[in-house]
């Protein structure tokens, strides 16, 4: 009989109702994942099986001048990953900074207000960020870029800034919670050696929070990868493998492309869009797998 705490878990677990409930919940999640995968594969089939000639019946596929489905998808994949990674590179340091400020530097009242503001920002719908991007950020940047890049500057750079602004709140609130949980013992160890506050953060807080920060970053990256409305409004779409983030009409993300073409797409077109959706699905898996690998190797190293 296993007794942990005041409950007799053994007996409780074996009770039919509880056991079924727990099992059902777990199965539910797995089933949903499975169902989504099946749906994507099923819907994508017509496009995957179609010949090049068949696909040329889709007007936007034709004008993309792609040679096959892979050729069609790859520039989208490139832009999606580029814009999201750039957004993460901008967002992560800012998020860590804000989290450290709230947890270790701000007076309690200011910290409470800052936390509250972050939580509110996290819940703002993405289309609002998109509107902010086109009506506020673009004209603002236009003052500096003027005739250098297109007017208004609806380019990947601007999009990445907006994406970064969108994902900062989520990453910050997760990291803030992690940093707050830094074991007091580790903090004392650093101070006891004569560390300043920043040195203590470097010694005790950042290493402790590294794995959690990685997870938070992956969560933020996921949101950036799937962002649709902001892309639709801000980014002027195009197809290329250009790293020039200031080049106009050079990039389009998978999600943005789906939203742009879906309303007018015929059934083969919808199927082709689903193929790109499937690709995005796979990218998300790969990103998660890579993140776990990196996190594991970080811990095992020591």
């Amino acid at each position: 009989m296993s007794k942990i705490g005041i409950f007799n878990w053994h007996r409780l677990f074996k009770t039919d109702k509880f056991y079924l409930l727990v099992c059902a919940s777990s199965l539910f999640v797995l089933i949903i994942l499975f169902a989504i995968t099946v749906f994507l594969l099923f819907s994508a089939m017509p496009a995957l099986e179609s010949s090049q000639t068949g696909l040329l019946g889709i007007s936007w596929y034709k004008s993309s001048e792609a040679n096959n489905i892979l050729d069609f998808c790859l520039p989208l994949v490139f832009s999606t990953i580029l814009s999201s990674l750039l957004a993460l590179v901008i967002a992560l340091p800012v998020s860590i900074g804000v989290a450290l400020f709230i947890t270790f530097y701000a007076p309690p009242k200011l910290a409470a207000i800052a936390s509250w503001v972050i939580d509110i920002l996290a819940s703002i719908p993405s289309i609002v960020y998109g509107l902010w991007g086109i009506f506020v950020l673009c004209p603002f940047l236009n003052v500096f870029t003027g005739n250098l890049i297109s007017s208004p500057p609806r380019v990947l750079f601007t999009l990445s800034i907006v994406l970064a602004v969108m994902i900062i709140p989520i990453i910050t609130s997760i990291i803030r919670d992690i940093y707050t949980g830094t074991p007091h013992l580790d903090i004392e160890a650093a101070y006891g050696l004569g560390a300043t506050k920043w040195e203590m953060i470097r010694l005790s807080v950042l290493p402790y929070g590294a794995q959690g920060a990685m997870s938070a970053a992956m969560l933020g990256l996921g949101r950036a990868l799937g962002e649709t409305m902001a892309v639709l409004i801000i980014l002027s779409p195009g197809r290329s493998y250009s790293f020039n983030i200031f080049g106009v009409s050079s990039h389009q993300t998978i999600a943005g492309n789906i939203a742009a073409q879906f309303p007018e797409a015929n059934s083969l077109g919808v199927s082709l869009l689903t193929v790109t959706g499937l690709v995005l699905f796979i990218i998300t898996f790969l990103v998660n797998w890579a993140a776990k690998k990196i996190a594991k190797s970080g811990v095992a190293n020591v």
Binding site: P183, L185, D186, E188, A189, L193, S204, P207, V302
Partner: peptide, 16 residues
């Protein structure tokens, strides 16, 4: 604190 060292109740080496 650099001149006066301290050892705590529970061992606290830096875990990473």
């Amino acid at each position: 604190r650099r001149e006066v060292g301290m050892v705590f109740q529970r061992p606290n080496p830096f875990p990473t």
